[in-house]
Design a protein around this nucleic acid. Sequence first.
RNA 1: GGGCGUGUGGCCUAGUGGACAGGGCGAGAGGUUCCUAACCUCUCGAUCGCGGGUUCGAAUCCCGCCACGCCCGCCA
Length: 595
Amino acid sequence: MFLAMRTAVEEALGETLAELGYPTDDLGIERPPEDVDAVLASSVAFRLADRAGAPPPAVANEIAEAFETETCAYVGRVETRGPYVNVHPGEQYFAETLAASQDTQYGRLEPRDRRVVVEHTSANPTGPVHVGRARNPVIGDALARLLEYAGYEVKRHYYVNDAGRQIATFTWAYETFDESELPEPERDSPEYDLVRYYRKGNTYLEAADPAAVETAESEIQTILQGLEEGDEAVYERVSDVVEDVLAGMRETLARLPAEFDEFVKETQFMRDGSTDDVVARLKDSEWAVYEDEAWQLAFPDIDKNLVFLRADGTSLYTTRDIAHHEWKFEHFDEAVTVLGEDHKLQAEQLRATLGLLGHDTDRLSTVHYSWVNLPEGGMSTREGTGIDLDDLLDEAIDRARGEVENRLGDRIREDDLDEDDVERIAHQVGIGAVRYDIVAQQPTKGITFEWERALDFEAQSAPYVQYVHARTCGILEQSELDGKHPETGRVDGAAAVDGTAVDSERLSSEAERDLLRTIARFPAVIDSGADELQPHVVATYTRDLADAFNVFYRECPVLGAKADTKRARLALVVAAKHTMANALDVLGVAAPESM
RNA sequence: GGGCGUGUGGCCUAGUGGACAGGGCGAGAGGUUCCUAACCUCUCGAUCGCGGGUUCGAAUCCCGCCACGCCCGCCA
């Protein structure tokens, strides 16, 4: 409703200004502050004051009076407050919001028929996922979900670096060292098992005597050359290691949960000849230079050449990534990549190169995030420093379980949680808290990892907003209009109340109106969040929604109200439940039915 | 040295041109015969890094400076 109303107001305001002889290029439409109960406002009077030769409040009045309220959808009345023109919604706005939000799919926008590939995580398959990179899958997965809600056809890709030097080193180390030389693995999972060889190999290359290192280096070079030439046998050797490590990493990521539609291997673009093809075209391009026996691109706007073919004739990561992105452009309308801030220059060079090759680079977007560091510094798989994501999640679940058990004693509600419930809640809250904490922040801000902060369940955390969802479920479960789903036995809001039959005018208190106004905004949050690729705005929204619901919860008893009021309030609770459930779904955070 | 990013009460954070900078943590005071107190109410606390500028209006835009992070590889 909010989106429709905004469109209508934009149109009507434009017409109003035109009639009065004012320019219509900047309507100054914005969202008013919290204490103003209008839904939309315009500050255009400020800018027109000079031209009108009148003070802003007078101009605002002139506009408000000329505004044709009757013909404008969803608008109830237009008033001024000082220089601002405030637009208040009419009853239809509330009625339709209430009706629309009875649908469990509330918040999903119309399909756009646009295919988007979201590439995220893409961590090198060298060992366990650590929290230094945990931002990537959390942001990436939330972004993919957000785009789906916004109506895009979304695929999630993990780009597997299976062709680089690190992987060659890994393969060599795996084939060279014996398990007896290694420490016990930290967990019973393939990536924890195999990373020991990788670390051992790197230590060896740093510390062994020069002759031994040279032998090792030549073996690593052989592997790299083999991959470059498309040698099947070498590919199989590397693949053994990569597949095992990746399988373990996938399991960890699935806990977040972050899952992928496709794992795209870098070697694919070497084997199918597309990298060679890119090299050939780049050599012919206007920015190509041959310097120091290597082919490079000298960008007009970037103060750093990109080597795309080494002196020894082999390709580089970025060269293959160019082929990779041409492949994306063939199969998708838009490509979004989530990358660490350390990849910024590379991303700029990639974009510029794609432009050089004649592609429309507006189709490519990059979301950068900054690292999660430890107080003592960065995290590294190779050096074995850092916190494993598995450990963080386990600890989060343990602490959440402790919280649930603590609260069990002084629980008012008599719904005896059994052991399975406790375990379910511990998982939903524990993992939800970690994920919410990451997704709620602007990705560009640096984070220093601290256990206490990451696992704080008070604060503005997942449990706070999850609790609201649990409360809505609790009310619905106890309502006489109880509409349990015939198969799952769960509370199904849409079955409990038919919102279209409910009179929204019964929801006339400030608390009810506020909640409804907040619910009405949800589709607009999805729209702008997707547009700007900012999932964190959805997290901010869940807090607004939780605040509004909590006020309503305090002020307006539902189950004890008289029949008609109760019916209307139940519809509002259903609306809040769907909105919160879907907002949490966008964030990839579980929506507990009890906690 | 150059490029990019970040800087908001003691701590964390929202807000990228408009209404007294919104929350949370913390500290203090209250609230449960009533739908879950992982909740709510009130109080305390901010020269929005510093200095200039543009504008009717700046946390937000521009310039300079400071601090921190990242990058500047024929690694990925």
